[in-house]
Amino acid sequence: MKKYAMVIDSSVCIDCKACMASCKVQNNVPRGYWRNWIKHTIPDFSKGPLTRTHFQPGGCMQCDNPTCVQACPSGATYKDPQNGIVHVNEALCIGCGNCIKACPYDARFRHPDKRVPDKCDFCFSSGRLERGLLPACVDTCPTKARVFGDLSDPDSDVSRLLRDKPAVRVLAKGGIDTKPNMYYVAATAPTDWAGEVEFPGAFTVMATLVNPVVKVAVGLSALGVAVMWAKQIFSPDKEESEHESSAPGKD
């Protein structure tokens, strides 16, 4: 079983956006939408010639605690146990948008034509991994800032990088650790851009209110039926049964 991850050395990113462009071409990402991104710090120009900007490539972090999957009622979005990739089964999805809201990284968008969520899947659905190719963004990166591989293979580039160097992750606000599989070597910036995990109202109402109400309603009804059934078996009304059986004769 594989566990795909990305280890990124954001210090060598030059913000060329080749990863974003190649992803768009490879995956037919519609105009105006992106599956991956390069974030940047706000430069402080008061430092004059010492002004620096730090660039940070990213995308779906294929979390081990994927809140998007937890927010999906039907299992249309799911974490692949074979490789750890979070997929979208477009044929099962009804486009309710729960998962898009539940992602603190804003890594999903609603595809304007297909009306189902679209996201980075490490180029799995484009067939690149199958053919032994790296994801398009990794393949195209001129400074090799993005490194892709299998964390469960100790000899993979990602495993060696994480073994040799300390790494940080960008975490969601609000205390829920989604356990992202995107690591930044040594340090990165910005790190405060992720939002809070937000389960949409429709999900919360169904989980905390509607589901208990339905269970109680069906439970009470079943209890009533059980009592009626027991009564019919153990203490049927005498006259009633006589009245039923003798009835045709009386008329």
Binding site: I94, C96, R110, P200, A202, V205
Partner: peptide, 13 residues
């Protein structure tokens, strides 16, 4: 996507 999300809640209830 809002109507689909809420429709499922009402459908189920």
């Amino acid at each position: 996507p809002g109507p689909a999300a809420w429709s499922r809640v009402i459908h189920y209830l």
